[in-house]
């Protein structure tokens, strides 16, 4: 019942709807303050946990929504595209990405919002990301085994652990709520120690 299942993502209807959803994506990122690289990186100095709060809120909202829509039969989760799980390159890719995030001040989506807000460092970050993406083509042929290391036929973590999707989404909500409490406590302690 969705465009991906009908191979229509790159048809005019898919291009137009992706553009509209991109509008919403950029809007919410900017509203959250993610058009600012100093705000984005403040989490790594324990000053502002907006990145954690926004990301976890969004992930939990969508996860609970997907499980609820699936439960009432409005969405077939099996018809959705999900990125493959390949553990080792995703671990190494995550490490590289994290260093790039704190040094560069952006991730690709927020850099788009930063550029739209007039941040020249976001433009330079995006040019760097384009170069890094191309550099992958130079490395990949020699890393064929590594790039498939830890490939999982079943990517869903709840399925791997033998629990249902709704239980998995509820567990994610519990983790998020704990993280919100922890983040708020750390923010308060840091402000008290070092006001400014």
């Amino acid at each position: 019942m969705n465009l991906y299942a009908h191979d229509l993502l790159d048809a005019p209807i898919g291009l137009a709807l992706a553009l509209l959803l991109g509008l919403g994506f950029g809007f919410w990122l900017e509203r959250a303050g993610f058009g600012s690289s100093r705000k984005l990186t403040a989490i790594f100095y324990l000053r502002d946990f907006a990145v954690l709060k926004v990301m976890f809120s969004a992930m939990v909202t969508a996860a609970l929504g997907l499980q609820a829509l699936a439960a009432v039969g409005l969405v077939d989760l099996g018809s959705l595209y999900v990125p493959a799980t390949v553990v080792w390159p995703q671990l190494v890719g995550g490490l590289l990405f994290g260093v790039g995030f704190v040094a560069g001040g952006w991730c690709p989506g927020t850099a788009a919002v930063g550029l739209a807000s007039g941040r020249l460092d976001a433009l330079v970050f995006l040019l760097g990301a384009a170069a890094g993406s191309l550099a992958f083509a130079g490395l990949a042929p020699g890393l064929d085994d590594f790039l498939h290391a830890g490939a999982c036929d079943v990517g869903s973590l709840p399925e791997r652990l033998g629990v249902s999707g709704p239980i998995g989404a509820a567990a994610l909500l519990a983790v998020a709520l704990l993280a919100f409490v922890g983040a708020t406590l750390v923010e308060r302690i840091m402000v008290r120690r070092n006001p400014a």
């Binding site: 390159p89 890719g93 330079v124």
Partner: peptide, 17 residues
Amino acid sequence: LALAGGALAGLGARFAL
């Protein structure tokens, strides 16, 4: 650092799909 960080993030995203 924006350029270098962008390059690492762009490369990392390819590794991580």
